[in-house]
Design a protein around this nucleic acid. Sequence first.
DNA 1: CTGTTAGCGCTTTCAT
DNA 2: ATGAAAGCGCTAACAG
Lengths: 332, 332
Amino acid sequence: MQSVARLAGVSAMTVSRALKDSSSVAEATRDRILTVVREVGYVPDATARVFATRRSGFVAALVPSLDNSNFADTVRGMTERFDAAGLQMLIGDTEYSLEREEELVAAFLMRRPEAIVLTGGVHSDRTRRLLESADAPIVETWDLPARPLGDVVGFSNEAAGAAMVRHLHAVGRRRPGFVGGATNFDTRGAERRAGFKKAARALGLAADRVVLVGRPPVTMDQGAEALDAMLARWPVVDAIACVSDLSAFGVLAQCQRRGIDVPGRIAIAGFGDFDVARCCHPRLTTIAVDCAAIGRAAADAALGALAARKEGRRRRSATVEIPFRLVVRETA
Amino acid sequence: MQSVARLAGVSAMTVSRALKDSSSVAEATRDRILTVVREVGYVPDATARVFATRRSGFVAALVPSLDNSNFADTVRGMTERFDAAGLQMLIGDTEYSLEREEELVAAFLMRRPEAIVLTGGVHSDRTRRLLESADAPIVETWDLPARPLGDVVGFSNEAAGAAMVRHLHAVGRRRPGFVGGATNFDTRGAERRAGFKKAARALGLAADRVVLVGRPPVTMDQGAEALDAMLARWPVVDAIACVSDLSAFGVLAQCQRRGIDVPGRIAIAGFGDFDVARCCHPRLTTIAVDCAAIGRAAADAALGALAARKEGRRRRSATVEIPFRLVVRETA
DNA sequence: CTGTTAGCGCTTTCAT
DNA sequence: ATGAAAGCGCTAACAG
């Protein structure tokens, strides 16, 4: 910046102002400066700006997986809003692991993010401590945590799980099973399973037909294997609710391979309204959530907290519930 | 850091050393310092460190889409290596757009990344200029660019497209079509299409049966629509090569809906070896690439360039070719 | 093994 | 409308 200033025959301060905004730099001066900037290919150093302004321009966002269109959509929704606010996102992939989440939080905190968006409401103790002392607005998404750390944008995964069984029951199924991943990782999936069991019991149905295939994310192939395991153990099963559309599709494909009629013999319900659910034949019944809306609302909450802070306003953190909806298609 | 130093009864420099490495701090002193650090919950400020060391600790990585398991795997491969090297990734999603790539490059450059990994070898002029003056090692992936900006880790998408037709020809198909996205966005997809046409002509087959469905990423649903368009215009088509497994799956599902036998009446080949290709019924013939290996090799190239630079060694940029392979399954 | 000094590139603040 | 001085939190380089 000094050298740009020298070439333009002004002080560094004037260059800084010319670059930053329109205010208070003579037009001729500004033009001269911008010409020099272009000529020498000067790119301002964001680090120095961070340092001087004590504002990092970063927002940290953690998702369980990037390779999942649900979370990818949420990230896209956030990007839309944070981009417009001039904030850059630091995106981290926790791989459905609380330990990895802790590592990432610790690493990101050093970059002094202005806000932090997390997926889920369950975190390690150290993560909670780090976050609490971080002095940045926090938003938890995709869940309705018992002890929120700040704002919340999500929905009840338990209710979603319950909605699945109730629908299967409504279309006449009396022996539903559930396919999901190992507990202690995907807590949202575990809550959907809990919702399934609770609602099944409430309807007077057996709630023990559960196949757990290992640690999340549960793949399509694992869904296929789960069907075999399910039928080997409980041949009477007449409906299968799955932790996601991916495993649901695996169940469907395996039924087709085995010549099992869907939904005649077995009904299938998934979660997430993934592309594959909309496109496969027969099309999957599923639960749809507006994932991008979760991202946008999470960003808006963070931005709101930041704005309140800047104006010295007090602001209570809030919970925004994003409704899910059952999409009845051809498999159940 | 000053306050930690005060509480531990040492100077800031000693705290810095204790935090950074084992070297040259008395064990008792270090223990005392680390205790204080833990007690007050001190988190070092990475920005100040960047500023003082003139090393950002960032690596920029740009991919066309995060919600695509091929690129997600490449990102995972990179993360593995960069993490181990203590570098944090700034991940950007170009949405298959060269303009968006340019914006992201400009924004990331302000953070002074130590290396930059791009997808593809086609960039806007300004992007090329920005990159060339950036003074950071550059790696281009997923392609074999005509004018590389630095190291390259990829494969020939044209050859992959050609391999698809040749296989369809080998299994007796003489009237193949191609389904892809609009040109000028996904240049890799466009190259696969070019390879398809060239190889078709070389085999004496018609090369004009191409359905373009719009801008990438091409979805499963668009694949389904493309089948209808293809058969409406060229009812004789007996095989369809697709720009990716997602569109290929859409074609397959639509065939099933229309009662068209696959592969009896129509053979299908995809690209990418996505989960859905492995799991669907019948399983998709496709082209597999070790995407995580691309990511690891790209990171290794960047790290190699960085190491050479540090030691003042000269180093010629290199091209690493990651082989693709045809995976013959049930649809072709 | 530990401390001191200087300075990274920019912006804030105050002065002109 | 522009400039000068100070300083953001840390570490390189040197001294002891």
